[in-house]
Design a protein around this nucleic acid. Structure first.
Lengths: 95, 95
DNA sequence: CACTTATGTAGCCGAACGGCGACATTTTAT
DNA sequence: ATAAAATGTCGCCGTTCGGCTACATAAGTG
């Protein structure tokens, strides 16, 4: 699943937890956090600590992959040549 | 790339930033955080806020994928039947 | 119905976050 | 070598984290 927001993450975690037939308390113990933490994260708490979240994913055997392959381009992406640098140089050596 | 730790995340972010020829200040502005935040995260700050990290990945067009497909099994994984529940019930109706 | 379990909520607390400004250090370019 | 930019470090500060205890609802079972 594609992760965009903390809510996505929370959903993934909750689904996986249920699939593994774990209750929040057990999962919390596995991860080493409080039960409330699990609750908040499953609800999409955006300000949770990155490290704890990663531990949670590990405890649930969820793989996280980062890739730069993108389907939707959003304007200028990978300029084969760094136009900016060229322009900058051009500006400097004006005369 | 597989993300296990915050250091992995930091490396991915830094690589991608350089690949995009951005300096930390510009990236920070894109994400909406301070320049120091970028520094710390690139260094693997484990306690960074999840939401900000996700914003960073988005700003760099890095896709995050969560999957439960795993190569290395680590003990008991997907018990087809929930033995625990069964045992629990058995214990209860002991007589 | 009464009983157990799971989940969610509230307040208190120490600790750390992240922003800010200023400075030190490293790297890059001329 | 000189200048400029990029990167990293340091306090200060308001805000929030995450753990804790206790309580409040669901949700399921006899």
């Amino acid at each position: 699943m594609l992760i965009r927001t903390s809510a996505d993450l929370g959903a993934v975690i909750r689904d996986r937890r249920k699939r593994l037939k774990l209750d929040q308390a057990s999962l919390a113990k596995r991860i080493g956090v409080s039960r409330q933490w699990v609750i908040e994260v499953e609800h999409g708490h955006a300000r949770a600590e990155l490290g704890l979240v990663l531990r949670a994913l590990d405890a649930l055997d969820i793989r996280l992959d980062a890739s730069t392959e993108q389907t939707k381009s959003r304007g200028s992406e990978k300029p084969a040549v760094d136009i900016n640098a060229i322009v900058a140089k051009a500006k400097k050596s004006k005369t």
